[in-house]
Every structure is written in structure tokens, then in C-alpha cells.
Write a protein that binds this DNA or RNA. Sequence first.
DNA 1: ACGCTGATGAAG
DNA 2: TTCATCAGCGTT
Length: 201
Amino acid sequence: MRNKSFYPSKPLPRSFYQRSTLDVAPGLIGKILVRRYHGSFLAGMIVEVEAYHGFDDKASHAYQRRSGRSEIMYNRGGIAYVYFTYGMYHCLNVVTEKEGYPAAVLIRALEPIAGITTMHKLRGNPHTQQLTNGPGKLCMALHITKNENGIDLQSKELFITRGRNIPSHLIGTSRRIGISRSVENEWRYFLKGNPFVSHHR
DNA sequence: ACGCTGATGAAG
DNA sequence: TTCATCAGCGTT
């Protein structure tokens, strides 16, 4: 848990991201998201994600449009897509699949692993359980903003590494949170029983 | 249950 | 140019 004892493994290869989004999304559960900040590492285990993909997903930013904000989702997998929402918050996605197919996975929650003191400062000292249990919260805690939009996940600044291997029976699925269209698709994945998974409202 | 807050994109 | 819509959060 101490930052000094944490040194990350190599970034996951680009090939990890260039697969079906519905394979990448549950595959991210248990992996470690790493952010370099002022020369040290902030890190957390991914415990909740949502997939947004393809031409028929009405909740996707890329639905029936390819311009501005959503253009980045058409890139080949392996880069970050960070967007600003509700006038206040940033959300981190990882782009998946091949060039020309619009898709990304939203990182919704982390279990903090390293740099927890720094994360508390960046978040305004909430209880640890509230530190990274939501997509806006984890971006605040890891200082992820639109400056990181488009960053290559092979970069030292922001990447994902191997973590725990999670047996599939420990991964739960549900409808996605906070959307009004295509609600029937159960493309949210989370680590069952983990206290950092965000709660439904 | 609601207000905060501003980027986005569609409509006019 | 105006307007509705929001992949959220914190306080009520």
C-alpha cells in the first residue's frame, strides 16, 4: 500500500485493446491503472467498467456521428479517450477494436493501490471508500483531464498493467449507469463484492 | 430529490 | 444563435 513499494509492470500490449470490446471490458477487471504524477505513481485496481461500442449503441458518444468529441473512438485500440461532462467532471475511457470501428470502455471505479495520500489531496480528503468509486472521482484522484485525451496507453504517463487474475464467476454484469438509451444492454462489468464499486442511485 | 456547471451537437 | 441533453457528484 505504500507508494515507495509500488513499481508498475509493463503496459499491457496494444493487442490487448484491439479486440472485441465485450472481451476487453471484463478483461480489464483486476488490471492496474497507473498514472505518473510529479515523479511518483498513483495506481488503482480496476473494479468496474462499461463498454460502449459499435454503430447501434444509442448510448455511445459515437452513435450516428463521427466528428468532434467522438472522432477519437474510431481510432485503433490502445489510446485514452477523456471527455468533460456535467460541466465539472472528466471521465476516462480506453479506446478498443480496430481503426474505423467506434468503441471504448469507460473506467468507472478503482480500488486504490498506490499514492493514496496524494489522491486524498486531489479529491479534497473524502473517506477512502469514496476516493475512486466513480468515473469522475477517479479522474480527480489521478489528475486525469482533457490534457490526457488521446494519450497512447503505452506511454509512461498513463497506462494499464497486469494485475490480479480474476476468475469469471467473480465478475458481475448489469445495465449501464446514467444513460437513457440502449439501457437493455448489460455492458457494465464489476468485481463482485468489492467495496469500491460505485452504487446505483 | 435536486442543483451545480459547461461542452457538445442539432435545430433554426 | 439558442436550446436540450448529458456515460457525475455532493448535499439535501
